[in-house]
Amino acid sequence: MKLKAPECVFSSAGFCPGCGHGLASRLVGETAEELNIVEKLVTVVDVACCSFNIDYWNFDTIMAAHGRDIPTAVGVKHVRPGCPVLAYMGDGAAYSIGMAETIHAALRNDPVTVIVINNSVFGMTGGQMAPTTLPGERTATSPKGKDPARYGTLSGVELLKGMDIAYLARAELVGVGGMAKAKRYIKKALEHQLNGDGFSLVELLSPCPTNLNLPPVKAKQFVHEEMTKYFPLGEFIDKGGDK
């Protein structure tokens, strides 16, 4: 990570202390600068916490309806194929209300880049259970812990593994190593788009101290020690790459 903040990121001050969004937001900015696409990039952000980025990024940005970021981004891409287009959303958008949109954009191999912030809960609404909530995890709608007999735990990345897309990876926004990998994956995803390879998706496991009811350091530990058991890290599809 550079010591100097990227010019295309104004702020991330609205996110809670210890939240992963500010880190992801900055990594997108750094990557855009390194790839020299700041003046071309169009971003589409989901509602709720993701939507703060519309005021933090110096990119032309659309705030989409919840879970419809990907089709919105695809609409932009078709009209302006010269613009890299990045959709930024949470796990609820990507794998719950927008599951159909995610799968079908991958099925069409639509040439957009998707960043999914997976924090295992619905954040802005106050920490309700999500498809990504871990078995036994207490949330506002699973106060006794998520019952795995009633609600499974969904890994969207595993679902996409069999699809003919350009790039698929998962990193954690924890530690220097995690951040370095997260940034490398975002960059590769955008490079695939610039090369015209098709759909790319990077999931970032992200701490949400506010809704996990944990101090920031413990929230990071939760991501690193618990979430990674259900959401393995790494690159899973890298079309034409060395993987």
Binding site: A64, A65, P71, T72, G75, V76, H104
Partner: peptide
């Protein structure tokens, strides 16, 4: 894949 995706894709195209 649905009318929901259709109208939201249209929104992206209109915004562009």
């Amino acid at each position: 894949e649905s009318e929901l995706a259709g109208i939201n894709m249209l929104l992206g195209a209109a915004a562009a």
